[in-house]
């Protein structure tokens, strides 16, 4: 990682402000984040309307293709999401250490769980000062792994399995993902778990946005702007 320490004299203040910024999120990670945000929103919306369709449209069937378009957008967005997920996994291998963080939880590390507990205590107002982390804090890493990384893979796998139903038994989708129907032989159940997966991700999105805004205001480091510039800015020099 590169550390730029800049002792910048504020142009109008005159008083020297000490600032430390670290390059955390590399471009591919940032692009993935924002592409994902758009895709997840699209997929959740279209997916919801596939499960609970809009009111019937008037006219002849041959003049309308509403459900077809909704499903097309859903499938297209799903395939793009899958491609970006593959690229993101690739980047976890070749990118910096922070690119790997959401793909694992150091389950056997006692220190991790101690710091995890500290974060939980901070969020429940039991502990005062949260620790500073260059990347995600242990609680964030844990939540992202559990509620983003795993569900995304789950949604891609079940999504392709469901898509293979229409694509046919000779399709590559069925060859690759047909095993899902060995777990849920009735695809009605596969639909149900695919729905639940959406809600897991949506609940995460709510918490994620709230915590990102809150931390940006409360903590001593930048959060939101970091996902745009990639730089983590620390606002003071205490540990």
């Amino acid at each position: 990682m590169t550390i730029h320490e800049t002792l910048a004299a504020a142009a109008h203040g005159g008083k020297a402000v000490e600032r430390q910024s670290i390059y955390v999120y590399e471009a591919p990670v940032r692009i993935w984040h924002w592409v994902n945000a758009v895709l997840i929103l699209t997929l959740a919306l279209t997916g919801y309307f596939i499960g609970s369709p809009l009111p019937s449209v008037p006219g002849e069937a041959s003049a309308n293709f509403l459900m077809g378009y909704i499903r097309f957008i859903h499938f297209a967005a799903g395939q793009v999401l899958a491609v970006f997920l593959i690229l993101r996994v690739y980047w976890a291998f070749v990118g910096n250490i922070h690119a790997r963080q959401i793909f694992h939880v150091p389950f056997w590390s006692g220190r991790f769980w101690k710091e995890w507990l500290h974060e939980v205590r901070c969020y429940t107002f039991l502990a005062r000062q949260p620790k500073k982390y260059v990347g995600h804090n242990p609680l964030a890493q844990f939540t992202m792994f559990l509620m983003v990384t795993l569900p995304l893979f789950f949604m891609v796998i079940t999504g392709f399995a469901l898509y293979s139903e229409g694509a046919g038994r000779d399709s590559w989708e069925y060859a690759l993902f047909g095993w899902v129907f060995s777990i849920w032989p009735n695809s009605q159940d596969t639909h149900t778990v695919h729905h639940l997966g959406m809600w897991v991700i949506l609940v995460f999105v709510m918490v994620h946005i709230y915590v990102a805004i809150r931390e940006d205001i409360m903590s001593r480091q930048s959060i939101i702007s970091s996902m745009i510039s990639g730089e983590r800015l620390f606002k003071d020099r205490e540990d």
Binding site: F125, T192, V193, W199, V203, M206, V207, Y210
Partner: peptide
């Protein structure tokens, strides 16, 4: 059904977020 379960969960989490934000502001 899955949507009802999901919406309930989202509602609870939404409420928790609002409460958490209020406590945060008060503490601050």
């Amino acid at each position: 059904n899955a949507d009802k379960v999901g919406m309930t969960a989202a509602g609870i989490v939404g409420g928790a977020i609002a409460a958490h934000a209020a406590v945060t502001a008060f503490k601050r």
